[in-house]
Every structure is written in structure tokens, then in C-alpha cells.
């Protein structure tokens, strides 16, 4: 397919990337391209300038700092699957990215692109909300850190404003917490019809549900038994979209099912 004419630049540092993004109208970051190139083919978006982040090495690192796992925005799914830091600090991340699409997509797709595209069917937004991740964003005005609950603003809309760059995603190390993830997908490892991620920490239960609203819906049941989970999901009064894969009613049902499964997986691990 022929793309609309576009300019391309490949900065070598974060400072250069921000300069390019902030200095050119219609500039957009290009990460793995596994969403953006398709969006450009469909002309659903037509950036004027692509700022290719692939050579900004500092965005690729995965490190542990104290009790926090810090994932550079350009860390690919394949890299996350093979990371010993992830395996030790928060293994659920490696397990979930291994369920995204296929080998080729996992070789290119990045954590930063996954969250910045804020597609309601993507795997990582609900997971990162359940894990209470935080997001470090930098622009010409400086750097700030945003909580997961304030990061996802709508479909394809996040706290990363025009001209800004997502630098990294920080996830607390597991500590006493146990995590789970469950989804009903279109075929094995396909697009999610509904997904749910759960984190059980001491007495708190956090469940984030994907595909039922523009952004993940966080529910915090009092207890972690199936009845309490179902009750909490019902109380959230979900108003999910309907499409060829599921009616709104069926998605509401799946939300309960996935939430219970994700919590069960977490509590089995927590024992």
C-alpha cells in the first residue's frame, strides 16, 4: 500500500527526539510500528514527521532500581520475555507479552507503543493498571511521572501530550503480591474480546478489566472469593461496546468470568 508522503528523522538521543517532536507540527514517535504503520496505511492518522526511536539506546534498557522495575519505552515484547530482571521482579509481564499476537509482532512491538496507542483491546493497559504502574513522560517543559489511573485517557489518547515522549514504565517489584491475567481472545493469542488482570497484595485486591470501556476499568473488591469479585464487577455497571465478536451483554458476562479467573490464578500463585 502507498502511504501518504511523510518526513522521517532518526534521532540518537532522548533530547534530540524531544526536540524533533516538539519542533515540528504533526510529528509522531515511531516505535515498533506494529500499530502506527497500519494506521498510516488506513489513513486513520497521517503524521507529517515520523521520529524513529529505534536508535535511542537509552530507551531500550530494562533495570531494577530498589523495589522498582523500570522498563524503557522501547523495550520489545521479545526483550521483556527474555529479561531476567522481569522474571525476578514481576514475572507476569513476561507471561502476558508472550500472549501478544505472534513472534514477528513480538520482535518489533514495544511496551511504550502498546500503552501509547491505548487501544482498548491491547493486553498491557489493563495489566499495568492492575499493577499500579507509573509512567515517566518528558517534553520541552520537563519531566513528570503519571499514575496508571491518570495515564489512559481514551481510545488512542494518553497523558503523553503532543511533542512529548514516554521514557519509561515503572512497575513495583512483586514483594508479597501475586498476579494473574485472563482473557477471552479471537483464536489463540488473538485480539482480546475481554481481558482482566489481577493483583492480590496483602489484603488489597485490584482487578483491571480491558475491552469494556475506552480505558481499563479498575475494580477493587473487598475480598478475593468469586462471589465478591462478581459482585464488584456488577457494581461497576459496565457499559461495554458491542461488535461482531460479542454483544454488550456477553462482554459484561465475560468481564465477570475473566475477573474471577485472573484472581483465581493470582491466589493460586500467592499460596
Amino acid at each position: 500500500m502507498l502511504l501518504r508522503e511523510v518526513e522521517y528523522a532518526r534521532p540518537g538521543s532522548v533530547a534530540e527526539a524531544i526536540q524533533l517532536l516538539a519542533g515540528h507540527e504533526g510529528a509522531r514517535a515511531l516505535a515498533g510500528g506494529q500499530t502506527l504503520v497500519n494506521v498510516m496505511k488506513a489513513r486513520a492518522a497521517s503524521p507529517d514527521v515520523l521520529v524513529d526511536l529505534s536508535r535511542v539506546e537509552e530507551l531500550r534498557t530494562i533495570s531494577v532500581s530498589g523495589d522498582t522495575l523500570v522498563l524503557g519505552a522501547m523495550a520489545t515484547y521479545t526483550q521483556i520475555m527474555g529479561s531476567s530482571e522481569v522474571e525476578v521482579s514481576r514475572p507476569i509481564l513476561g507471561e502476558v507479552v508472550a500472549q501478544i499476537a505472534d513472534v514477528q509482532v513480538r520482535n518489533r512491538g514495544t511496551i511504550g507503543g502498546n500503552v501509547c496507542s491505548s487501544d482498548p483491546t491491547n493486553h498491557l493497559p489493563p495489566l499495568l493498571v492492575a499493577l499500579d504502574a507509573s509512567f515517566t513522560i518528558r517534553g520541552t517543559g520537563g519531566e513528570r511521572t503519571v499514575a496508571a489511573s491518570d495515564f489512559f485517557l481514551g481510545v488512542y489518547l494518553t497523558a503523553v501530550a503532543e511533542g512529548e515522549l514516554l521514557l519509561s514504565v515503572s512497575v513495583p517489584a512483586s514483594g508479597n503480591a501475586a498476579d494473574g491475567f485472563a482473557a477471552v481472545t479471537i483464536g489463540r493469542d488473538g485480539t482480546c474480546i475481554v481481558s482482566a488482570a489481577a493483583c492480590l497484595d496483602d489484603d488489597a485486591t485490584r482487578v483491571a478489566i480491558g475491552c469494556v470501556d475506552a480505558v481499563p476499568v479498575l475494580v477493587q473488591p473487598e475480598r478475593s472469593d468469586p462471589e465478591s469479585i462478581r459482585g464488584a464487577v456488577t457494581a461497576a455497571a459496565l457499559d461495554p461496546p458491542a461488535d461482531v465478536h460479542a454483544s454488550a451483554d456477553y462482554r459484561r458476562h465475560l468481564a465477570e468470568v475473566c475477573a474471577v479467573r485472573a484472581v483465581q490464578q493470582a491466589s493460586e500463585r500467592g499460596r
Partner: peptide
């Protein structure tokens, strides 16, 4: 990006060449 008929190796990794720009 769905069918994989365009799969090549880029620096040793399988990728779909319809999902990359040549400049990349």
C-alpha cells in the same frame, strides 16, 4: 501485518516486512 507472507529476517529476527519502512 496479519498473514506473515512478507516475513524476512532483520538482524536475525523474523519480522513482517510490510510493517516496516525501508528507511528503518
Amino acid at each position: 501485518g496479519n498473514c506473515g507472507a512478507c516475513t524476512i529476517q532483520l538482524d536475525g529476527q523474523a519480522v513482517k516486512s510490510c510493517m516496516l519502512l525501508a528507511v528503518q
